[in-house]
Amino acid sequence: MPLLEVENLQTHFRTPDGVNRAVDGVSFHVNAGETLAIVGESGCGKSVTAMSILRLIPEPPGKIAGAIRLNGKNLLELSDREMRQIRGNDVSMIFQEPMTSLNPVLTVGRQIGETLRLHQGLSKQQAEERAVEMLNLVGIPEARRRVREYPHQLSGGMRQRVMIAIALACNPKLLIADEPTTALDVTIQAQILELMRDLKHRVGAAIVLITHDLGVVAEVAERVVVMYAGRKVEEAAIGPLFRTPRHPYTQGLLGSMPKLGSSLDGTETRLAEIPGLVPSLKKKLDGCVFASRCPHTTDLCRTVAPALEEKAPGHVAACHYAAREDLGADEMVAA
């Protein structure tokens, strides 16, 4: 049984000008100890998916439907009280902004200890010991001094390390990281990614990594879900996803990224563009969500929404024309 199973997740919001179908029928699973990345551009519903798992969506104006099963238990059926027991304990979350997600008037040690005292009933003394241990784990030097410092005394990278320490304090089974390195500089991002890779082996928590950066995905994830306009359009292990992307959106995304080192062999290529804009999520779409921007669109795409089909073992895509395992890319366009 997978650790987390999300089935037909729908998260909609009531807005003054209609219902926003931010997430509309997304299913995926995460196995214990595995790192799953959810990628997509802004507005694709990846962050809403993450927030929905922890039920951090205010209802109303939002509404969540479907099933989110953690070890077989549907989180959507739990009471608020039971849900509080899960958050920070079984499942914890890291946010993008390390500056605003820490409380500026509490010491770092207090903030790490708080969850421990709340969920595991540790004494003040024990909590501080564990806080020092956690800071050591996330690579903060002079941990014993640092536990008594306030967030403003730490740099951006240090704060993100503290966030990770807080998230890992209760030994969660699942860690949801929402754009954990987006606000950081590249050299600091490299440090945090290195830390995440290292912790993956040492702590063994499963990670759901939400990001827009395919480079970050390639560095830490094992499996990828690609989202577009509130749907999952493709899912695969990272190797096949980057080598043979099946959905035209994934192909477009990869093609539109300039490749580092492109100048070395002197092949100057023009970036591939995905023309047009993401469709409004306030209208119900007939057909494929990507039809308005896809280079291969046919009448079929505009009228019939493609089901997610397994195109190769473990590689699913929602496209009528995506190549199957034994078909080449040429046939795909011709089909």
Partner: peptide, 8 residues
């Protein structure tokens, strides 16, 4: 051709 189930 497989159609996706419509979402309610």
């Amino acid at each position: 051709v497989a159609a996706a189930a419509p979402m309610p």
